[in-house]
């Protein structure tokens, strides 16, 4: 029994580690400036945790095997204070070290402001769709009013058309951004909490009604990337999905013009 249990623990450990190491199901390649640092820190954490995982599980398996009841004499001991201090300090250094080591990624996402030349886009979540608003040629977001928010009349974000600044606002169900240009998203919600997540950007952020959460990034590769809602928002949560379209700058500009409103 002891041999079996030790063996099973060892096999589970090695198989799990193998499946992590082949990266069969993994993050897609990154396309944002955070990607490299994120992946490096993710791997570092993975390696450290992998080593602890291996040592702890195999240590457990070894203890079960080595000290199975064979009528041997038990070494009577109530512990060892030196050991306690040593492994407490060792874990403290390791755990605090790893979290502080990685904090720069968080800082670059959230503590650094978006560059001043960032393209500003408002991202709106609603049950169960996305809308993205571009300020248009005037660079200003127009007034919106909740009472005007009617998808049925083609005004999902409630643009107040008596406001000049609102007239040129472009509202789209997917988000296109120019490649290699910083983008700042202003995340808002019409109803409940949603979440904007693009795997390739390595970032996610809640859209909380009543708040304007912000997120900035620079996409470095063109292409179409999925944006699945990542905060439970109701029965249609699983199909609340849109696309991030990273386009060359010129293409992006013509896309905006093509979709400019005709009032």
């Amino acid at each position: 029994m002891a041999v079996l249990l030790a063996g099973v623990i060892a096999v589970i450990t090695l198989v799990s580690m193998y499946l992590f190491s082949v990266e069969a199901w993994w993050m897609p390649p990154y396309i944002s400036e955070y990607g490299q640092a994120y992946d490096a820190h993710f791997h570092l954490t993975m390696i450290i945790c992998g080593i602890i995982f291996f040592l702890a599980q195999l240590g457990l398996a070894y203890a079960i095997f080595r000290y199975r009841d064979r009528g041997q004499k038990v070494s009577y001991s109530h512990g060892n204070n030196t050991l306690e201090v040593v492994w407490t300090l060792a874990t403290a250094v390791l755990f605090w070290g790893i979290v502080l080591w990685g904090t720069h990624i968080w800082a670059s996402v959230h503590l650094e402001a978006a560059p001043s030349n960032a393209v500003q886009i408002e991202a709106w979540g609603q049950q169960f769709a996305w809308y993205f608003r571009y300020p248009g040629p005037d660079g200003k977001f127009g007034t919106i009013k909740p009472e005007l928010m009617k998808e049925s009349s083609g005004n999902p974000l409630g643009l107040d058309l008596t406001d000049q600044a609102a007239l040129d606002d472009v509202v789209m169900p997917i988000v296109a951004v120019p490649v290699n240009r910083p983008v700042e998203l202003i995340l808002r919600s019409k109803d409940v909490i949603h979440n904007f997540f693009v795997r390739e950007l390595r970032i996610k952020q809640d859209l909380v009604p009543g708040l304007e959460n912000r997120l900035h990034f620079t996409a470095s590769q063109t292409g179409r990337f999925e944006v699945p809602c990542s905060e439970l928002c109701g029965l249609g949560h699983y199909q609340m999905r849109t696309f991030l379209d990273v386009k060359p700058e010129a293409e992006f500009n013509s896309w905006l013009q093509e979709n400019a409103p005709q009032y």
Binding site: A56, A63, Q72, V74, L83, W87, F95, W96, I98
Partner: peptide, 23 residues
């Protein structure tokens, strides 16, 4: 991450209890 420290202590102590025993 600080909470990981006492959690780790517990794990070490569990292993320490097993080592030298008669399971």
């Amino acid at each position: 991450l600080s909470i990981g420290i006492p959690s780790a202590i517990k794990t070490f102590n569990w292993l320490g209890t097993l080592i030298g025993g008669k399971i």
